[in-house]
Amino acid sequence: MSKLSKKIALVGPFGVGKSSLFRRFIDDAFSEDYKSTLGVQIQKKVIQMDNGTALSMILWDTEGHEEISESRSSYLLGSHAFIYVFDLTRIDTYKNINDQIVFLKSNYPNVLLKIIGNKVDTVVLKRVKKSLKEHNVNYDCLTSAKTGENVAELFVDIAVDLTN
């Protein structure tokens, strides 16, 4: 059985639910209380892939910044994937998202990037999709750390992409 280790960094503005997604995936738990992340929290979860590979997903839950360029570069160093998270209930977290994506793609061209809209359980999807369209936001998936909607699927997708 082969073993692989991949670093995945959760990035994006503060309060969008990066730590909640992290906690939902690692411990399958959720708390309503907002607790801001200072610096970086790191956890590991091993996923057994269909091809027999044991994939260690090393998740770096980084503190939130409105501009990704403000993030500490050492946190992003050596990443195999970025999960850029924005908050579906706060336009400010996605209105300039394309600038953040350009930054990530130009500075980390070989790193897998997934763009995630979180807190899907709290919004009227039709209206939010309209707003996302207005701001030209192309997302990969909409999640809810609270209900778990699409969270496991997101990490499994990333695992598959990283092992293929």
């Binding site: 309060g15 801001s36 706060r90 400010d92």
Partner: peptide
Amino acid sequence: NESIIKNQELVFS
């Protein structure tokens, strides 16, 4: 952060 988030949520609502 709490103050900014609350404000942004209000704007969105």
